[in-house]
Computed example of a mutant assay.
Amino acid sequence: MSIRQSILALLQDRPRYGYQLWGEFQDRTGSAWPLNIGQVYTTLDRLERDGLVRKDEADGEGHVIYSITEAGQAEVRDWFTSPVPRSNPPRNELAIKLALGLTLPGVDVGAAIQAQRTVSIRALQDYTKARRDTAAHQRPADTARLLVLDSLIFQTEAEVRWLDLCEARLMQLANPPV
């Protein structure tokens, strides 16, 4: 996830200060990904250094307001028109954990799979409930949250299916054909 491009995209809407950007990010993504307020301010400093945002006059309450530059707008346009690269798959801690567990003595990979399945199914239930609740009272602004929830649901469903496959492979390993 690119905090850099997300902040620039939010600044296209209108100038904001850091805490407003943090709140907008949380609202528009359904708080699906934790974003530390410190990350926002560090990113704003880098964006200013790179000429993609500028500091405007502080508001009456002492907040430093940031606005996007033309170079920042060009970067946002490029971000939205470019596909997310798939050449380097994201690091998957669960896949690494299970792969290493299979190769190390004394690791109960079956128990790890069961523990993860429990957590994943609980998350799937939570995402599904949040999606149902949001859709039941949907406002136009909720479409973005629904997209995020749909993505989380599909990813979690895929993880549960993958865990089923891992378990089946473990059983094959324990009971090789004769």
Rank of each mutant, 00 (worst) to 15 (best):
G30E: 04
G60T: 06
Y66H: 13
E75C: 13
I113R: 09
T156M: 02
A135R: 11
P15S: 15
E61V: 04
L149F: 08
P140D: 05
F80W: 12
D133L: 11
R28T: 05
A112F: 02
Q73A: 13
S120M: 08
G106S: 01
G18Y: 02
D133C: 01
R16I: 00
G38F: 06
D164G: 09
D142W: 00
A99S: 14
A168V: 06
P15Q: 12
R14F: 03
G110C: 00
S82K: 13
L163K: 11
L21G: 09
L152V: 01
L170P: 07
Q125R: 14
F25P: 00
N36W: 07
A74K: 15
E70Y: 01
T69W: 07
P176T: 04
F80M: 13
S87H: 13
V119E: 15
T81G: 02
S2P: 02
Q26H: 06
I65N: 08
S120F: 05
R139T: 14
F80H: 12
T42N: 12
V148S: 03
G38N: 13
V40N: 01
V40K: 00
E70K: 14
V53H: 14
R91G: 04
L147G: 10
I65K: 05
I121R: 15
P177K: 01
L8S: 10
N36C: 03
Q26S: 08
Q20V: 09
L10R: 14
I153G: 00
A136T: 05
G23P: 00
A136E: 04
R122P: 00
V76D: 10
P83K: 15
F25R: 02
D78L: 13
R139W: 05
A32H: 09
I153C: 03
A74H: 15
A95H: 13
L147E: 15
Q114L: 05
D45I: 00
P83W: 05
P83E: 15
Q172F: 13
R28M: 04
A99C: 08
T81D: 10
M1V: 10
A144W: 09
T81L: 13
D150T: 08
D108Q: 07
P15K: 10
P85M: 01
T134K: 05
L124H: 14
D142P: 01
L124M: 12
G18V: 04
D133G: 02
